[in-house]
């Protein structure tokens, strides 16, 4: 399966990309994608506890299973307003 990963703010700076394509195994969760990315970019690990995540622009928990073609987003703590 192939998913798109969207990264914002400092997460985008760390990875150098606002959007990445990643291959994942069937049955993979958002958390699996995160751990794969954190393996590639060790600086991401510090966000493990403060991170939010989304599937197709809806908030979703890290244990949610993803599907082929989904857009996964990782959101550092927000600061709008």
């Amino acid at each position: 399966m192939r998913v798109t990963v969207r990264l914002f703010a400092r997460l985008r700076d760390i990875t150098g990309a606002s959007e990445l394509a990643r291959d994942v195994a069937p049955g993979a969760t958002i958390g699996d994608v995160w751990r794969q990315l954190a393996g590639e970019f060790p600086e991401l690990a510090s966000y493990e506890r403060s991170l939010s995540s989304a599937i197709n622009a809806d908030y979703a928990r890290m244990d949610q299973v993803i599907g082929d073609g989904d857009e996964i987003a990782f959101l550092p703590p927000v600061s709008g307003g």
Binding site: F8, A9, R10, D13, S50, L51, S52, A54, Y59, A73, L75, P76, P77, V78, S79, G80, G81
Partner: peptide, 23 residues
């Protein structure tokens, strides 16, 4: 809860402002 971020540019540097973990 809004997925929006401030990137602050100040005299001497820049920093991403990180507030609440959105849930």
């Amino acid at each position: 809860i809004a997925p929006i971020w401030k990137h602050e540019f100040f005299d001497g540097g820049e920093v991403w402002i990180e507030g609440a973990t959105a849930n």
